[in-house]
Structures are given as C-alpha cells and as structure tokens.
Design a binder for these strands. Structure first.
Lengths: 194, 194, 194, 194
DNA sequence: TATGAATGAGCCTTCATTCAT
DNA sequence: GATGAATGAAGGCTCATTCAT
C-alpha cells in the first residue's frame, strides 16, 4: 500500500492560504509562500485543487458556508428573532476570537470584485435572512422600516467590518475583547429594533 | 500650456488605475493595461511614482483625503451635528452617483490588509469624528452609548459597504438610486440617534 | 504464474507508451497517462527501467529489432533478392495493418535527433542490407548504380514514410489498404530495379 | 523615441529555436535555452508570439512556405517538368548545404503527430504537385503509373529523409556533399521516369 | 511486490521596471 | 520630457521520480 493521505496537511494548506491572503492579498499569497508556510511541497495542493483560484474559491465557500450554517442552526432551534440574531452575532464574535483568520479572510474576499460567494450559499443566506426579518418585525424586535438590504448589511456586514477595523488596528490596538463583543451585539440589535 | 497637458495625463492614469483595480484587483491592474487605458506610455508614471505600489497608495490617500475634507468642510461650516452628518452622507452618496469608481476603490482598498490610509489622514479623520461625536451627543442627536468605533463604522464604513453591495449586485440589481440615498441617510442617522 | 501476470503488465505499459508517444509526442506522454492507460501504478515501470527515457529507448530498440529480425529471417530463408525485399515490404505493411502503432512509433522516433537506434541493431541491419544489395545487383533486380544509402532509404524509410503520411492524412483520408500495399511494393521494387 | 526594434534578435530567436528543437525535440527546447542561445531575454519572444507553440508553428509554416515558393517559382518559370523537378531538388539540397537546420527542422516537425503544415501551404503544394505530375507524364519524364502519393513522397519526403539520415549520421559521417546532391537528383528523377 | 502520495526541479508565461532613444 | 523595447525575477503549474507502506 502507498503512503496514506495526511489530512493535517490539507488543513495546514488552508490555514496558510487564508493567512497569507489576509496578510498579502490574493496575488501576494504565492503558491511558494503558501506551501512553505504549510510545510508542504509546492505541487501538493494541485492534488486537491485545479489551481490557486479554485483553492481560494473553495476556501471562501467553506468559510461562508460555516457562517450560513450557524445562522440556519439558530434559525431552526429558536423561535425568538432576538435570540437568533444574538446567537448569530455571538457566533461570529466567537469565530473572531478563536479563528480570527476566518473573519479576516471573509472581510478581504467579500470586498473584492473578483471573488463572490457561490450562488447557493448566497441564496440560502438571503432566504433565511428574509424569513428572520419578517419574524423579527412580527415579534416587534425589528423596526418596520428596516429593508432587507439594511438588515443584511447591519447583521452580517457591519459586524465583520467592525471586528476587522479593530483587528486591522485602524482606530486602536488590534484585539477584539469580550467587552467589544457585548457592545457589538447590543449596538446591532438596538439599531435594528429602532 | 505644457503643464496643462501633463495634468490631464496624470489624471487619466489615476482614473484608469482606479477603474482597473476595482474591476480586476490590484494584481490584475497591470501597468500595461493602466497605461493603455490612460493612453499614456508604460514608462510615464515612473516619472511621478516610484512604482505601482506607490501609485496605488497615493491614490488611496487622495481619495480618502477627499472624503476627509468633505467632513472637515461640513464640520467647519455648520454647527448642527445632524446637518454635518447628513451632509457627509449626502456627499458620499453623491460621489457614488457621480464617480462610483471612487467609492468602489475605497471599498476595495479599505478591506485589504496590504494597504492602509496614511497616518495623517487617519488621525485627522478620527479627530474630527471624535469632536463630532461629542457635539452630536451634546445636541442629543447621537445616543450616549455610541462609542467612537461604532460611530466611525456606522458613519463611514456602513455607507460605503451598503453602497458597494448594491453596486456589486450582491443582493439585487446594481444601481444606487435617489430612494436608496434617502433610505441610507435616514437609517444611519436614526441608528445613531437611538 | 506470477511471472505471467507481470509480463502482461509490462506489455501493457509498452503499448500504452507507444500509443501515447505517437498521439501526444514524447513530452505529452506522461508517466501518469501511460500508467493509467496500462492500468498500472506510476511507480511500476521504475522496477524495469531507470526512467522514462530508458523506457522509450528500449521500446525503439525492440521495435526496430523486430523489423531487423524480419529482414534477417527472410534473408536466411530465401535466395532470391526480390523475394526477400518483397517479403520485407510485405511484413512492414502487415505491421502497418495489424499494429499501426508500431509503424507510427518508428516513424515518430526515427525522425528525432534525440533518439537513435542502438549501434548493434543499426550495424546488423546495415550489414544485412549491404549483402542483400550485392546479391540483388548480381541477380539483376537492383540497378548497378543504387548506393547503400539509397537502398536503405528506399527499402526501409520510404515505406515507413509513405504509410505514415497516409495514416497522418497528409494527402488524403487516413487508411492503408491492400491496394496501397501492392502499389507500395511494386513502386519500391521497380524503383530499385532501374 | 523608444529603442528601435532589433530585427537581428528575432532572427536569432528563430534560429536558436529551430536548432534546439532539432537537437532536443520540442519539449527539450525550453524557452530558457532558446533565449540563452539567441542571447535574448526570456520574455522577448512573447512580444511577437503568444507562446512557444505559436512560435514553432510559425517557424514550421515559414520554412515550408519557403520550399513551397521555390516549387512555385520553378513551376512558373519553366515548361519542362524535368527542369522543374531538378530545380526543386537542387534548391532543397542547397538549403541542406547552406542552412541545414531548416531541413532538419522540417524533418523533425513533419514526423510529429502534434504539428502539421497549415492547410494553405499544404493545399498549395499539393495543387502544384498535381499539375506538375500531369505535365511530367505528358512530357514522358514521369511514368504513367506513378500516383500523386508516390510522386509527393518521392519528390519531397524522400530527399528530406535521405539528407537527414546523412546528417543524422545514421549510416555514415554526417555531411551532405556535392556528389550526394548529384546522386540524389539522379536517383529521384530516374525513379519517377520509370 | 506494487502502489500512489508526495516531492521539487524546471517549465511556460507575465509584468513591473529600466533605459536607450 | 516621453516612449516603448527589452529585461528578468517571480509566478502558477506539471510531471518524472522517490519511497513509505
């Protein structure tokens, strides 16, 4: 039998790729650098992906899918819109604490005109958010005048941006604390309420 | 007379660079493409910039400076915090209508860990925003609990993101209408108010 | 028993290699493709050959040896030069019908400055052709003025080229029929006669 | 004004490419090696060709066109089929003496299943050869039984093969002398006559 | 023995940058 | 001053080869 596939390796490639893309941008994250950081040969990733672009697209999809699934899970488990929203925000913050690269990666990729989330993930997310908005408005925790666009931007984009400008040290030292988390959740839910 | 011609050329280079970076990303916007689009030779820009990176950094600074100056202008001319904020938001929207490339460019560049606004511009903006926040809270048009971070994210980042996800057609067809403008200004000011 | 299985495998590798080299050239015939076509692992052939180049050299030698041995066989069995030549030409045509890959392979490899027949095979062939030429001239079936060079080119190279330009569809649809065979044998023998 | 194009450079690239392809095959002739041999930068040829394949295709076309044009010239200038054929053969031999690389290059490329002459050149050549065959048969210098296929193979392919097996030193030391030229022309014309 | 996961040298190609004109 | 021909470093990718299993 031939050597067995080392699953750790692929994970290392994923992490190295995300970190380098965040740090140096898509073009700056060369295959050489990614492979070196992941302690893997340059040819390795071509066993799993057709090329660099496919790797990055797959990474973006998986990362967004994670957020999308968190939303779905909360949506399925709970009835209260406020609980769902707080759960989602809390989950996003937890990712920011535990795996800040992921949030940075989403941040970087979402703001590119070259990469977009796959239609499936986008549609699924929009659908759930639509339902959540209606429920929230029925339950009087979201203002009647809030449109889907603002709901989406406020609930998903705003937190990601807020967290990242922290991590990017745009305004102050780059950490995202428990206090920030509380403040963020409150700000978003209050804003949507009215 | 000769000077005038030069100025036009450089402006053409700037516009071409921004358009191409927005469309194809930093790496996709090659010097060849930029020069071609600007109807200028490839070597031309090296008389003014040390290289591509310096050009782009300069572009980002100038674009942000424009926004910063709009803020300063409104801040100097008006006493009412709400008027200043509405003026700023309105100005951002006007840029989005008149020169959408600029807003797209800021959007793309801000969400990159490679490029950052120069310290000067950043500091000046933060200073003014700080003052505005305090005035706004005194005038009871900004909630007491709004921190500088949220104020900045909501007043500057949120509009840019909102506009761009429109233009990027993330949620729906990519236009930014007068109605959107009104809705955006209302949403932001209402949010900050309480 | 185990040996037999091995032999089949190696034969499959040989055939796959020749087919792919003919179809895609030396560089296009990758080890991966050869192994896949032969239903063998990529590492397999390295048990028998030092590398790709050795494999191909060996293949060329074996294929040419086959032709050389046909010539020797006819030469040993028959006295009439015309019978020997016709036998050889007929045998070459038969290969072209039964195993066209072999003829294509010789065609492709002979016209390369990278690969040459091994000295042994070359020398043996030249020796026999020399004898045959002398006999043929004694028997008045080969013109006195025909040199070894022309004899070799006409008897061996010309048929291979003629067949291949047929198969390559250079002039017309790519088949090599019985009529072509007759025409080829006649043309070559007539040419050498006078 | 910018630097002026150095025509010599491109010629050097062409020669280097042909020489290396002859010596090491298409795959062995790397861009690095070609550029080095031509004393040109690696990126140079991409100003004129889209890639390696286009360069080689263009080279093949130009080389074949040269032969094709020689044929046309003789065909237009002379009435006698034997003069035309002798002229063509003589011209091919002259190329072999003056620019042996060209003949070697045609030899190598024609026997590849990956590269073919462009349809235009092929068709033009076949057309002229067809006319020449008919004229030759009318003038009793080409046997009635010679088919187009044999005519083509004998008049074009045979000489190229003969010359190359000389140059390849398959049978003897690799030169192609005046005596060889005479012998070749005689052999081909005699063969076709009867 | 045979496999095929993993490697990394080397390929083709792009493109920021230089500099002769 | 302005051009654009030329460069060559660096990029993405392929594939012959190795070797743990």
């Amino acid at each position: 039998m031939a050597r067995v596939i080392d699953e750790t390796k692929l994970v290392r490639v994923h992490e190295a790729a995300m970190e380098l893309i965040v740090e140096k941008g898509y073009a700056g994250a060369s295959i050489f650098l990614i492979a070196k950081k992941a302690d893997v040969s340059e040819g390795y990733l071509y066993r799993f992906y057709k090329g660099k672009e496919q790797l990055v697209n797959s990474l973006l999809d998986n990362t967004l899918k994670e957020v999308s699934e968190i939303l779905d899970t909360y949506f399925d488990k709970h009835e209260s819109a406020i609980t769902i929203m707080e759960g989602l925000l809390s989950a996003i913050c937890k990712i920011a604490e535990k795996k800040p690269v992921q949030i940075k990666f989403i941040f970087v990729m979402l703001s590119s005109y070259n990469f977009t989330a796959s239609e499936d993930i986008k549609n699924n997310m929009i659908e759930t958010l639509n339902k959540l908005l209606i429920i929230g408005q029925k339950q009087n925790v979201i203002d009647e005048n809030v449109s889907v666009d603002h709901f989406f931007t406020m609930l998903i984009i705003y937190p990601i941006q807020f967290i990242n400008f922290r991590l990017k040290q745009f305004l102050r030292k780059g950490t995202f604390s428990r206090k920030d988390k509380k403040s963020l959740i409150e700000f978003v839910t209050e804003t949507l309420k009215k």
